[in-house]
Design a protein around this nucleic acid. Structure first.
Length: 581
RNA sequence: GGACCAUUAGCUCAGCUGGAUAGAGCGCUGCCCUCCGAAGGCAGAGGCCAGAGGUUCGAAUCCUCUAUGGUCCGCCA
């Protein structure tokens, strides 16, 4: 399925044969032997570094190994030439049939082409978004949501059994503030004058929640002390906020497999049990932390509290799990939450956090390492800030000014597909500029458009061909005579398509979905370039008048490109377009 | 004081986990539509891969130090 893996194993077999023939010492490690397309296509279709890697341990000259290897590889029908080059590279040229078969493979597999077995038999939990349930999602949450979702899809495509999870922070103090805010809206719904004190949430979105509460409970909470209503209203408000958030996520095309309530860890003994477990490992103690460096808070005083020995696992200092008054810090339930994930039996955990949680990474990894005995890797991906630009100027958002751009506003303005794709055109850990004007522009500068346009062009060809009476269903295309695809430009395009499975693997291995977006942009560029060749050289147009057989072979190539684009966009959560408007 | 991330063309960024002459887009220069959508394409100019050491057949990539920028640093979740 993966051509590069096939060629690599061909090389490895040849090396084994050399060992058997006494041309190479036995027992050499071939871990670093690669088979990859050379950067410069003029070097050939595939290059292996085997000779250079093995030269030293074998005590032989690289060129000697390479030449013997070349002879053996030449025996394979797929290899048309094997030349030693440079310091000891072995450049291979492959038979056109190898590339032509790629088109057939793609048509056979459809958008499943490129699915990998990297994660086969393994499960991974991807936790993302996890915004506090105190209001609708805004732009700040969007990048993490898109990134996490695309990463989850990528891993699923690479064979992992993926769980998408959202942890609801419904156990902390901010739920109390939410409840008070809703209470004020509730009073307002009863016609009372209210003022929002510092710390409460004055946003309009709580108005309907207050009204709904009135609907549900009538006037029973009016003039009642806080301890009567705080709990129930907190629950009521959290549910309402989660409904809001789910709606926002739906707009983005994000669907979670599981919502985990942090509150469910409280008063159930789960936190205590988990910390007991750590205590038995000798990782919990009472102590006093060093005062923070840099700016010292005005009211700082050294206090003794319960600490977790995260320094044992590389953290800079130990971390508090209990406040001075004995209440849990946020870290405590979070440890228990991750313990729960470990106990659910995942083979790997991934958390997607905003960059402002960078300081949290080490302690969380420390906790998971301790809880799983080092058996469950936790990867934490941080997403950097998104800067919005409108009319050429940066649009600053601030909590105080309350001028957040809501996720729903963003979608309304530019759409789900644009939002998702653009958010994935940067590495997760690099800041991202989101320019409202650019992202809706129809030009090469706008990668979303450019990729969509390539897909639409193929769809257009299919329509035109059908109009001309040429059968272009995939079943027919599959049986086309692909040996007609013998032009260098056609083979080059097939090579690019053939890279897809390999790209999926590397992207999945590094948890970097942005690589998909970049590859699609390149593939689209190659298609556009190829398309234009047809201007000067009519023999390269997809539709050849009066020659349905050739047309079908060429259209099969176009379809293969479109299928890969569709598969890639599928991972990114973007709908491929059949025509541009 | 410390941690994490970044530093690649005038600008915005990739760089396939160590490979051959470092790549795109924008901008600049010059070209290509009786032609499946020119909403495109081709070509040219433009680089001390922040700096200095190290690791090895080989470094933009790995390690150390330095510089600059960003994020963060008590029991807030």
């Amino acid at each position: 399925m993966n051509l590069f893996a096939d060629i690599r194993s061909l090389v490895l077999h040849a090396l084994d044969a050399m060992v058997a023939a006494g041309d190479l010492p036995a027992g050499l490690s071939t871990d670093n032997v690669t088979a990859e397309p050379p950067r410069d296509a003029s070097h050939g279709d595939m290059a292996t570094n085997a000779a250079m890697v093995l030269a030293k341990p074998a005590g032989m000259k690289p060129r000697d190994i390479a030449e013997k290897l070349a002879v053996r590889l030449s025996d394979d029908p797929r290899v048309t030439s094997a030349e030693v080059a440079g310091p000891g590279f072995l450049n291979l040229r492959l038979a056109p049939a190898v590339w032509q078969n790629v088109a057939q493979t793609v048509l056979d597999s459809g958008t499943d082409y490129g699915r990998a077995t990297l994660g086969a038999g393994k499960s991974v939990n991807v936790e993302y978004v996890s915004a506090n349930p105190t209001g609708p999602l805004h732009v700040g949450h969007t990048r993490g949501a898109v990134f996490g979702d695309a990463l989850a899809s990528l891993l699923a495509f690479a064979g992992w059994d993926v769980t998408r999870e959202y942890v609801i922070n419904d156990g902390g103090g901010q739920i109390g503030m939410l409840a008070r805010s809703v209470y004020l809206r509730y009073l307002e719904a009863h016609g009372k004058e209210v003022a929002f004190p510092e710390g409460t949430y004055p946003g309009d979105y709580l108005v309907p929640v207050g009204a709904a509460l009135k609907e549900k409970v009538g006037d029973q909470y009016i003039d009642q002390p806080e301890d009567i209503w705080l709990g129930p209203i907190g629950d009521f408000a959290t549910d309402a906020m989660m409904e809001l958030i789910r709606d926002d996520l739906a707009l983005l095309g994000v669907k979670m497999d599981r919502f985990f309530s942090e509150k469910s860890l409280y008063n159930t003994g789960k936190i205590e049990a988990c910390l007991d477990k750590l205590d038995k490992m000798g990782l919990i103690y009472n102590g006093t932390l060093e005062p923070p460096k840099g700016k010292l808070p005005d009211d700082y005083e050294a206090r003794e509290q319960t600490l977790f020995k995260s320094t044992e696992f590389g953290d800079d200092q130990d971390r508090a799990i209990k406040k001075h008054d004995g209440a849990w810090t946020y870290f405590a339930p979070d440890i228990a939450y991750h313990n729960d994930k470990v106990e659910r039996g995942y083979d790997a955990l991934i958390n997607v956090f905003g960059a402002d949680h960078g300081g949290y990474v080490k302690r969380m990894k420390a906790a998971v390492h301790a809880l799983s005995g080092g058996t469950v890797p936790l990867d934490i991906k941080l997403t950097q800030l998104v800067k919005l630009f409108k009319n050429g100027e940066e649009f600053k958002m601030s909590k105080r000014a309350g001028n957040f751009v809501l996720l729903s506003d963003l979608i309304r303005e530019v759409g789900k597909d644009v939002t998702r794709f653009v958010m994935l055109t940067r590495k997760n850990d690099a800041p991202l500029d989101f320019d409202f004007d650019k992202v809706t522009e129809q030009s090469r500068e706008n990668p979303v458009f450019y990729v969509q346009y390539a897909h639409a062009r193929v769809a257009s060809v299919l329509r035109k061909a059908a109009d001309a009476g040429i059968a272009v269903d995939d079943a027919t295309l599959k049986s086309a005579d692909l040996s007609k695809l013998d032009h260098a430009a056609e083979l080059a395009l097939l090579r690019k398509v053939a890279e897809w499975p390999r790209l999926v693997e590397t992207a999945a291995r590094s948890n970097e979905p942005h690589r998909i977006a970049f590859y699609l942009y390149e593939l689209a560029g190659d298609l556009h370039g190829f398309w234009n060749l047809g201007n000067a050289e009519t023999g390269l147009r997809f539709i050849q008048e009066d020659d349905p057989a050739t047309s079908q072979a060429k259209i099969a190539l176009a379809r293969a490109v479109a299928i890969v684009i569709a598969a890639g966009l599928g991972i990114l959560g973007v709908t491929p377009a059949d025509e541009m408007r």
